[in-house]
């Protein structure tokens, strides 16, 4: 077996984590010869992206579609995410499936804090994204991203199970592209980025505080 003697220049470095900086074309060539080359980072991301354990945590209507995604027809097990864990300590992914009320919001944040890193959050459905049809409600939190960072937003009311699967695939893509070291390393590898977030308290009229400015800033209105 002969190795390709083309040494990659730094300019040929691709964002995709390549093993030993060998170009993808060469690795593909090697693969056809029966040699698999990979990097620790790639192997690690490949493994964890294909065995995401979601938290078994349903809030409202979207939870039924989440269950439907887990049943025979849509079968989320094809994507390695069928093991719904009832305990946040064992979960990698929180699917916020449904309306987050102000009474529920502190508990969602608490569950998020209890999950170990690396952890990811999917806001499933219009309510979890922004309050959705219930936005006018006095007890409805206008988007879970006011308190915890959200990785994937899945619009819909409720989103179809296919949409949830698509969101899961997007998340897998994101995980596969994460760096484990270097200046652009993933969030969970950095010591300066918190993995726990302050839990809002029940106030006399509203949650206190109503949002976490470190996580969320309101969208800027158009300058006009």
């Amino acid at each position: 077996m002969e190795m390709s003697d083309a040494t990659p220049t730094p300019a040929a470095y691709t964002p995709f984590p390549a093993a030993g900086n060998i170009p993808d074309a060469d690795r593909e060539d090697l693969r056809r010869h029966g040699v698999l080359m990979t990097s620790m980072e790639e192997l690690y991301n490949w493994g964890r992206s294909n065995s995401i354990w979601p938290l078994q945590f349903g809030l409202a209507c979207c939870a039924i579609e989440m269950i439907a995604a887990a049943t025979a027809r849509f079968d989320i097990a094809r994507f390695g995410a069928e093991i719904f864990r009832p305990s946040p300590r064992q979960a990698d992914l929180m699917i916020v499936s449904g309306t987050v009320t102000k009474k529920m919001a502190p508990l969602v944040v608490r569950l998020w804090n209890q999950m170990p890193e690396p952890k990811y959050c999917i806001a499933m459905g219009a309510c979890a994204i922004s309050g959705g049809p219930f936005k006018q409600g006095y007890n409805v939190l206008k988007g879970i991203d006011r308190f915890i960072p959200v990785d994937i937003y899945i619009p819909g009311c409720p989103p179809r199970p296919e949409a949830l699967l698509n969101g899961l695939v997007q998340l897998q893509k994101k995980i596969k592209g994460e760096k484990l070291s270097g200046p652009d390393a993933a969030r969970f590898t950095r010591a300066d980025v918190p993995s726990e977030f302050p839990i809002p308290e029940y106030g006399a009229h509203d949650l206190e505080p109503t949002k976490n400015p470190a996580v969320w800033t309101p969208p800027a209105p158009p300058s006009a």
Binding site: Q170, K174, D192, A214
Partner: peptide, 15 residues
């Protein structure tokens, strides 16, 4: 802020 990494990733999501 300390949690500013997640918003940066938002733009990379198709959804």
């Amino acid at each position: 802020g300390p949690g500013s990494a997640p918003p940066a990733t938002k733009s990379s999501n198709t959804e």
